[in-house]
Amino acid sequence: MIPLGDRVFGRLDAVRVWKGLADARVNYSADEVRRPSWNIDTYLTTLPTERPGSPEPGGSWEHACRLVRDYQFSPPEIVRALYDPAAPLLGRDMLLEARFHGMHFYCGVRVTEVVDETRGNADRVWGWAYETLQGHLERGKAAYEVVKQQDTGQVRFVVSCHSQGAPTLDRITFLGWRLFGRRTQLRFYRRCGERLRDFVEAALRGEHPAPGPPTGVEHLVCAPSDARTRRLDALAIHRVAPG
Rank of each mutant, 00 (worst) to 15 (best):
M1C: 14
L4M: 13
D6L: 11
R7C: 09
L12N: 05
D13C: 10
A14T: 03
R16T: 14
V17L: 07
W18I: 02
D23I: 08
D23G: 11
P36Q: 12
W38I: 02
N39G: 07
N39Q: 02
I40C: 04
T42M: 08
L44V: 13
L44Y: 14
L44C: 14
T45S: 06
T45N: 06
G53F: 03
G53N: 03
S54R: 15
S54V: 15
P57Y: 11
S60Q: 01
W61K: 00
W61G: 02
E62G: 02
E62I: 07
E62K: 06
A64Y: 06
A64Q: 04
C65G: 01
R66I: 03
R66D: 03
R69S: 09
D70G: 07
D70H: 05
Q72I: 05
P75M: 09
P75H: 02
P76K: 06
E77D: 14
R80I: 09
R80S: 08
A81S: 13
Y83G: 05
P85D: 11
A86F: 12
A86D: 08
P88I: 00
P88F: 04
P88Q: 01
L95M: 07
L96W: 03
E97R: 03
M103P: 15
H104A: 07
V111I: 10
V111W: 14
T112K: 06
D116M: 08
N121D: 00
G127V: 06
Y130Q: 07
Q134T: 04
H136T: 09
L137F: 08
E138G: 05
R139D: 07
G140M: 03
T152F: 02
G153Y: 04
F157D: 00
V158C: 08
S160N: 10
S160F: 13
G165H: 06
D170H: 07
I172H: 13
T173H: 10
F174G: 10
L175H: 09
L175Q: 05
G176W: 12
G176Y: 12
R182C: 06
R183C: 00
Q185M: 12
R187G: 14
R190C: 15
G193N: 13
E194W: 15
L196F: 02
V200E: 12
E201R: 03
L204F: 09
L204S: 12
R205Y: 12
R205D: 11
H208E: 15
G212E: 07
G216K: 06
V217S: 10
V221K: 10
V221Q: 11
C222P: 14
T229N: 08
T229R: 06
R230G: 09
R231E: 08
L232W: 10
A234M: 11
L235H: 14
L235V: 15
L235R: 14
A236Q: 07
R239H: 00
R239A: 00
V240H: 03
G243T: 11
